[in-house]
Amino acid sequence: MLEVTDLHAYYGKSHVLQGVNLTVGDNQVVRLLGRNGVGRSTTTKAIMGMVRVAGSVRFKGREISGLPPYEIARCGIGIVPESRNIFPTLTVYENLLIGMKSKNQKGRWSVDATFDLFPNLKERARTAAGVLSGGEQQMLSICRTLMGDPDLVMVDEPTEGLAPQLVEQVGVLLEKIAAQGVAILLVEQKLQIALRISHQVLVMGHGRIVFSGTPKDLLAQESVRREWLEV
């Protein structure tokens, strides 16, 4: 579904992505691990068209690098940024509406289905999103992206700063998303969630992918974990 080949990106003079290669297959859950600052978030931003890149990004067979973000979104890629980026002055309901790419979009997700998943959000549908708790904002941010009915969703550090039971909730939500046939590229710093559902694990270091394999392979490779993951 997604093929990234030799992707390079720069912030000013610093060469952040130094030839990233990765693929995400249909319905696959791929986790992108690595320490802070190795370029994981930049990779998702680069795929989304938010960062100028060199190299190739193909999605469903179409070259999408160089397209503006809204066109990439319309191809079927969704992103849930680490900073959540909810619209604080708008209500929860309005935040979800904006997730829809057109007024009468029909897809795997609806506002009602979202509210069934999170009764909390339903109760606060008319509340300004800015007053939600961190966990609720995270759920809202994920659900808002789902409203656009993406075929691939990139979720950046969804458990950052969340209490343990909320981390579990995020894990359950990601499983539900995967069960709908949506591919997931999950950026995580720790080996915390979603091990159950991930098909492939990528480890990133110094702007490139340094390990690629199944979760089991990674568990077996202590040297990789020590060199690239453990602090």
């Binding site: 979104a73 604080p88 002055t89 904006i98 997730g99 790419k101 992206t145």
Partner: peptide
């Protein structure tokens, strides 16, 4: 409040 996010949700900024 956040035009980049609106763009990433598929709206033509």
């Amino acid at each position: 409040s956040d035009r980049d996010m609106v763009g990433m949700l598929g709206h033509n900024i």
